[in-house]
């Protein structure tokens, strides 16, 4: 119980204040990953299936959607593909993902897959992951909302976000 309660508190707290009060819309799309690149290689094992994200993956290397996703992932140290927006999440799982990221006080970027069907389908192939939301930190695929909750509780996600934060400055 003691490990669960901080999250419950967080979710309750943020539910009452809505997703957006504390954070301005992300404007990080023009940023590029610098030190994040090396971070990715050192933490690559965490992905478990990160091989699908390699640039050299020839499968759909020429697909424009894949290239768009790749550049989004490279440009945003903390990137959430979600249903809806930070202001109006359209799905409970996306809402949970937003709330967890907002608890770290970072300016993360979101992509609304409902507004772009190519991205919606493309991200599933790109990450080899069937569901939304999907979180990328420093170019690395982290997982969906269940995994975010698990890594939030273990502190692992916080460590990753701290590294990404350093790259945002």
């Amino acid at each position: 119980m003691n490990r669960m309660s901080p999250l419950l508190l967080l979710v309750g707290l943020l539910n009452s204040t809505s997703c957006t009060l504390a954070f301005s819309p992300a404007t990080s799309s023009s940023r590029t990953l610098q030190r994040c690149g090396s971070t990715t290689t050192t933490t690559g094992g965490v992905g478990g299936g990160g091989s699908t994200l390699r640039m050299s993956d020839a499968d759909e290397a020429s697909s424009p959607t894949r290239e768009r996703i790749q550049s989004l992932v490279e440009a945003n140290p903390v990137l959430l593909f979600m249903k809806g927006t930070k202001l109006f999440p359209q799905c409970g799982f996306s809402n949970t993902a937003c709330q967890i990221l907002q608890s770290y006080g970072i300016d993360f970027h979101t992509v609304d897959v409902l507004a772009d069907d190519e991205i919606r389908q493309g991200i599933k192939t790109f990450s080899q992951w069937p569901t939304i939301p999907q979180l990328y930190v420093c170019g690395e695929f982290i997982g969906g909302s269940d995994i975010m909750i698990e890594m939030y509780q273990s502190g692992e996600l916080g460590e990753m976000i701290e590294k990404a934060k350093a790259d945002m400055v």
């Binding site: 965490v46 478990g48 299936g49 599933k124 992951w129 069937p130 695929f141 997982g143 969906g144 995994i147």
Partner: peptide, 22 residues
């Protein structure tokens, strides 16, 4: 042997890939 959450989830997603497909 699946030590990370993502690797465990991938195993489950793989087992149910027809169900969770688009």
């Amino acid at each position: 042997d699946a030590r990370t959450p993502i690797s465990r989830h991938r195993l489950v997603n793989d087992a149910l890939k027809e169900e969770v497909a688009a």
